[in-house]
Design a protein around this nucleic acid. Sequence first.
DNA 1: GAACGTAGGGTTGTCAACAACTGAACACAT
DNA 2: ATGTGTTCAGTTGTTGACAACCCTACGTTC
Lengths: 267, 267
Amino acid sequence: MSTRSSGLSGLTSARQVGRLAPVRRTSTVDLIADRLREAVVDGSLPPGAALGEAELAFQLGVSRGPLREAMQRLTAEGLLVIPRRRGLAVRTMTPEDVRDIHWLRARIEPELGRRILARPIAERKTVLAELGTEVKRMQRALKKDDARALGDAYLDFHRGLAAWGGSIRLARMMATLLIETRLCTFSMYEHFEVAVDLVPEHVAFVDALAAGDAERFETLMCAHLDAEVRRLLAEPVAAKVDDTDRLLAETPDEPQPLDRLDLPEGI
Amino acid sequence: MSTRSSGLSGLTSARQVGRLAPVRRTSTVDLIADRLREAVVDGSLPPGAALGEAELAFQLGVSRGPLREAMQRLTAEGLLVIPRRRGLAVRTMTPEDVRDIHWLRARIEPELGRRILARPIAERKTVLAELGTEVKRMQRALKKDDARALGDAYLDFHRGLAAWGGSIRLARMMATLLIETRLCTFSMYEHFEVAVDLVPEHVAFVDALAAGDAERFETLMCAHLDAEVRRLLAEPVAAKVDDTDRLLAETPDEPQPLDRLDLPEGI
DNA sequence: GAACGTAGGGTTGTCAACAACTGAACACAT
DNA sequence: ATGTGTTCAGTTGTTGACAACCCTACGTTC
């Protein structure tokens, strides 16, 4: 009997034997979109930088068609800006964006603790283990003074939170919001910086969850997001080359007409 | 002096004279995406219907390129599903989606009252006037037993709420959530139906806002969304042709592997 | 009679070429 | 010197065509 084929523990060995898992074939557009998101997250496509699509397509080894389709996706997510006939640019986040993003996160993330604690005890343990791992990653990164790694672990921690929150739509939205949070860092700071407070804050999250205290989790999360905004906005924007704003300006230099609240692109 | 050129009231006459408003040129992709969204909202692209892209492109009078780009946008918004090589299909909403959507709305909309009431008094009056207009539209529609018109006014009411809530991201997200709500109706009911309770519920919203009572607004909104879910799920799904599910199924008929929460497409 | 293998129609995914547009540089007139 | 008009290179927006692929239906074999 190969009913317990691999040595993996309970969770992953739930896969049936004798029935092959379907081959996961993602479309080219998916792949490109993922690649672009990665590039945005790791900073190889910095905010405001205007890349030509021919160049990008060549780098990715695809033609312009699929690339353009992927670009539209990231545009819908609000990560990219496509000014008419001027190539693409990664969105530059303004202080207003920082507040906007964190306000939205504050509507959602505090509630996630409750949702996770509402899950069956077995799953709950898994979640806690996963989140604990991310916190350890953060601690290691802090010790090595590796701001990049710290940031990545931070992303994964909150991604996990959203994924286990149980809502497809929410997870998708949070994924975007987190990338945008990263973009805020890029837009506000010159370089990655290690925020020392970050780690104890996240240790406290896991503690609260382990104690089953949704209330405390909620409070902590609100405080964390609040602190995050202050950290991001404390650093003056300095003299950054803020190309996106200029590119975004469909309205040359006229103050936005007040009678129409129009979203930058589509929707 | 033509400083007050038109007879319009204070709000819109804020436009400067002697300086022309810039010509608003939206890209073709934007136009197509808008058109598609419209078609989804008004039901001319019903959930599950599988249209060929050549046919669609012909109808819209564009070539397949821009159409495909627009499709990617709607896909990112979660309104469309693009199974590999099988055309496009409007997403069919399941009962789980109904709960998901309304849970998310319940995180956001109750808070909007507070945000609107926090605005300067002048704006507040404008908002109330606008929302009042929508409610009147709803009342007229109810009197004429016009479910379609009622639904449209409902959408505009909540769109307005989100727009005046003051967050770009939130307005965008809510716009999508509202279209999805409409899709829920299409997916659950055979035809539009007039929900009689809807109108008094919305009258109460405006009343609460007029009274400056954010607390009451919050309670009312939660109750409304709750009722909405019950209304939608009360109707048994009946024997609907549910094509999307079959198309969506990347995994032929194996129960979702538990170790990976994977979103249907991209992100 | 059921399952397998095979051909056909039609659709999508990708590509490369063309046309339209933009921004910058330069010359010229006021 | 400032501003206007023109030219030009480079880029994007759009299109049509080709190849790859999926689904269906039919014929064949056991």
